[in-house]
Design a protein around this nucleic acid. Sequence first.
DNA 1: GAATATATGGAGCAATGCTCCGCTTGGCAA
DNA 2: TTGCCAAGCGGAGCATTGCTCCATATATTC
Lengths: 212, 212
Amino acid sequence: MSPADMPQARGERRKRSDARRNAQTLLDAAAAVFARAGIDAPVRDIAAEAGVGMGTVYRHFPTRPDLVVAVFRHQVDALAATPAGASGENPENPYEALRSWVARFTDFLVTKHGLPEALHSDQAGLESLHAEFVDRLVPVLDRLLRACVDAGRIRADVRPLDLMIAIGNLCIGADTFPGYRARHMVDVLLAGLLHHAPAPTDADRPRTPTAP
Amino acid sequence: MSPADMPQARGERRKRSDARRNAQTLLDAAAAVFARAGIDAPVRDIAAEAGVGMGTVYRHFPTRPDLVVAVFRHQVDALAATPAGASGENPENPYEALRSWVARFTDFLVTKHGLPEALHSDQAGLESLHAEFVDRLVPVLDRLLRACVDAGRIRADVRPLDLMIAIGNLCIGADTFPGYRARHMVDVLLAGLLHHAPAPTDADRPRTPTAP
DNA sequence: GAATATATGGAGCAATGCTCCGCTTGGCAA
DNA sequence: TTGCCAAGCGGAGCATTGCTCCATATATTC
């Protein structure tokens, strides 16, 4: 996890060693507390976990969302970097490339308790978190979508931003609401992008309703 | 707007007249404040709008969500009652019946600032609001979906609950996030239910990509 | 008109995000 | 090594907000 440092970047004075250490301690503590108690965990708890005072938290991360953003930044970066990498874009089957990236995105969201909810601003200045996601991930989705459209696989009237927010939204409640299958609904949404039906073989479509 | 009364229903003593009046005043005030300031408006503000004290609010609606539920109940009822009524189920085209009901549902959600967000419990005991929606609307969706499945129009692996929550989720941020087109994404989701391409007539599906 | 159950209002409590400020300390110069 | 001081720190305290408590006020009944 990269420290919130990069201190001397523009000739600024290098931060004091204890400050750098505390910033890192806070990031680790926040990650731990978020994982344990969800993203809405009180700042006090994070300060306590890190063994520092409230003032120290707010010195390093002026607002609660800043801390959240910092904690998730590198994970978002990883997500943003993916398509060019291992499970990257597949010129043969752009739709599968889209699906596979979206699956990773969905996994990420579903795993972090409360993250998808937090992406919605009206809470308390979480706009920066939202902005982070938009800035990093919309370009990726844009590429993936464009490839599909160019290949004539999907409809052209869905914008990357629409899709990103929609996926994020569909993941809300994935961990808190028992019967709800977020991943499945993301899949349905992606199917809705296609010009044609998903069913590769007719066997996939039972005539008699099946309880999933 | 039906008062929160039905007082003598089971031989219970009829509430005092001032109490009944205040309950109604509170409902009206809450509706006004919610419309003006969103669903997260402080209880104090609602009490002030109604010209009563905090204690009075909590006497009538033991918890904040109870008040929210009461305000929206009759609208939810209307939604639940629809399919048997005017724009009701269409045996000729069950998918269109589904679409038209979902459109009404979506309109409702998009209109009420903060309602879709509020449907997600982990905030502060909004479970009852959620429960209200589930109890009233899942049966409706069940009927609509079943009709589509029976007609062989849509996949059978989507449960009413999944769909209801998914639609609610897609509406989140509709009013707060500028570029996001919630209604459109609900439409895409519904298209994802279909076995075949959305186009009922081929004219509906342009081959050349269209900018939204 | 008195008695009584019912209802009211608003001070106060607890949780939580964030600020303020006096004290502490790392890093540098002598 | 020593001493200075800006950078950093801790935590009390403020504001907001959901909710509780109870002394007071009032509708209803006889």
